[in-house]
Nucleic acid binder design. Structure first.
Length: 275
DNA sequence: AGTCAAACCTGGGCGC
DNA sequence: TGCGCCCAGGTTTGAC
């Protein structure tokens, strides 16, 4: 569930608190999620200092001293918490204590999340970061860019929006919201989109992601910030999770279908199907 | 190249 | 109360 705006929210909160901290003790409760292994994390992290925390797509990157990099992907239900709520305590899979007494917890109900620890020259290969496409916050998404990355490809709009090797960071919720904002049906064929469509799409991608960040992310079931605080963006969603409810723009009922293997929400009247 | 389904997991909501 | 079933959706993998 965490997509670019949720991950960005977490990174901003961590950045405000953790850089400069030195790892002191590491407890891993689930080895499956740690790579290359929980033992490597336990043995290599203590003594290392967090130099910087940043984000690429949905990945969180901790640049550490001694040429090490720790990478975290939250996948569906992962969370990095400074203060875990009672409910989330039983899902804590790793616990990081720093020598300044600060703590960071990795909680993950469904255990899809991953934590990697590698040398700086190998983490791009080992984590999948190397395959990521452009990050829409670091690179301006405009008509030029979309023509470049979508120009020669086929397929449905939604499946391309979800493709992390093209544009990194868009997930199911924002993909639906972006399609609505652009006035395009998610099942539209990419090869049928006009220049004007791509123009609208570019604006929609930037606008939807930035608005999600402005609202501190979207909380549907599980996402919370580092202090367990819910985001506010779910109050502003136009189509996701609203099937059967009236469209805010035209009052037609929001529809739901299965597309690219995901629940897909749209307004038939506001979103044009280009086929 | 694209499409699709299954796998990885578990909590929560549903019907009975 | 509780069982069985389905749903959620990020990513990888493998088949067609």
């Amino acid at each position: 569930m965490p997509e670019l705006p949720e991950v960005e929210t977490v990174v901003r909160q961590l950045r405000a608190v953790l850089p400069g901290s030195r790892f002191w003790r590491v407890v891993c409760r689930d080895g499956r999620q740690m790579l290359p292994s929980a033992r490597v994390l336990r043995e290599l992290l203590p003594g290392k200092v967090i130099r910087d925390i940043r984000r690429l797509g949905k990945y969180i990157i901790f640049d550490l001293s001694d040429d090490l990099v720790m990478v975290v992907h939250l996948r569906m239900t992962g969370m990095l918490l400074l203060k875990p709520s009672e409910r989330l305590k039983k899902f804590i899979r790793a616990e990081f204590t720093f020598s300044n007494a600060k703590k960071m917890y990795f909680s993950d109900i469904r255990r899809f999340g991953r934590i990697w620890l590698y040398r700086s020259h190998e983490f791009m290969d080992r984590t999948g970061l190397k395959k990521l496409g452009i990050d829409p916050l670091l690179q301006k998404v405009d008509l030029d860019l979309l023509e470049k990355v979508y120009g020669q490809t086929k397929g449905t709009l939604k499946s391309r929006l979800l493709d992390q090797t093209v544009i990194a960071g868009i997930g199911n919720i924002y993909a639906d919201e972006i399609c609505f904002a652009a006035g395009l049906h998610p099942a539209s064929r990419l090869e049928k989109l006009t220049k004007k469509d791509l123009q609208k799409l570019a604006g929609a991608i930037s606008a939807c992601l930035l608005e999600g960040i402005r609202h501190g992310g979207t909380t549907i079931a599980d996402f919370v910030g580092t202090r367990g605080d819910a985001g506010k963006h779910q109050r502003y969603l136009q189509v996701y999770g609203r099937s059967g409810e009236p469209c805010y723009r035209c009052y037609a009922l929001i529809k739901k279908m299965r597309l690219a293997g995901r629940g897909t929400h749209f307004c038939l009247k506001c979103q044009q199907l280009k086929k």
